[in-house]
Nucleic acid binder design. Structure first.
Lengths: 138, 138
DNA sequence: CTACCGTCTGGAGTTGCCTCCAAGTCAAGC
DNA sequence: GCTTGACTTGGAGGCAACTCCAGACGGTAG
């Protein structure tokens, strides 16, 4: 176990979050309480860092803060919350899969539009308006 | 061409947006100005509806309003903006592809965690903490 | 004619998620 | 011992994207 215990500034740099965001996440229960030194300064352990990295990843994928705070709270309540936690993960997984599917469809659509621009299929705005009527291009 | 010209309420119902959102989108230039009746009431044509549907799709995929307003403004300026418009689409397409890639990775991670919950690989919180140290689970 | 529903406008309020600030404490270097 | 820089707190501020509201107008049904 290497260089344990980092300051909030180091953690912020490591994970590309601001110190304000890290404190905010802790305050709202998105990260379990971080240990402190005698003089009340936060000392992030490896485990704390793992939480930060996990939360950052989930937030980045659009998982709502509320679901994550709930998960963290249940985690801290121990093994009895095993099932509930799993359900949260499944719900979030399904929502994420749904969003990915929608975004893939939109990606296709964008690629299609770009191809049309490339091929100069749309030489004038009037013609463009006409194709709109078919609900295909814009 | 079937039932042309819908009221804002009909369009809202058709596309699952609120009338407030539709008016908001028009006000900020996200949808070209919609034609009005003599009594100033909005009358959405098929083309207007196509814009609404397009914008809804793009917003749903996380494309920023700013990029879309710029695209709409260029579109209204005519064919001379062909290249600029294409560039916007390409930028947005690339950003979207990036987000999808990240989300897919997060989806994998969630599935992995759920599998672990299923297999009861994590029977107690202490053990869970141990696996955290390897940066694998949380 | 009146009631009612949907629309109109401009502007204020809300939500989610940070981000910034003032005022103070602490450890280290000069 | 004083300055510097990173940390502390509670609370205010900010931004994107809506969402709601008051007050007015229009068309239709009874």
């Amino acid at each position: 176990m290497g260089g344990n215990f980092m300051t909030i500034g180091e953690v912020a740099r490591k994970y590309g979050l601001s110190v304000d965001t890290l404190r905010y996440y802790e305050r709202i229960g998105l990260i379990p309480n971080v240990h402190r030194s005698e003089s009340r300064i936060r000392n992030y352990s490896d485990e704390d860092c793992n939480w930060v990295e996990f939360i950052k990843c989930m937030r980045n994928a659009g998982v709502q803060i509320e679901a994550l705070t709930e998960y963290v709270a249940l985690f801290q309540q121990g093994e009895s919350t095993h099932f509930e936690r799993k359900q949260i993960l499944i719900t979030q997984r399904d929502q994420l899969a749904q969003r990915i599917a929608e975004m893939k469809a939109t990606l296709k659509r964008l690629n299609f539009k770009i191809d049309n621009y490339d091929q100069h299929i749309v030489p004038a705005q009037k013609k463009l308006k006409k194709t709109n009527k078919k609900g295909v291009l814009l």
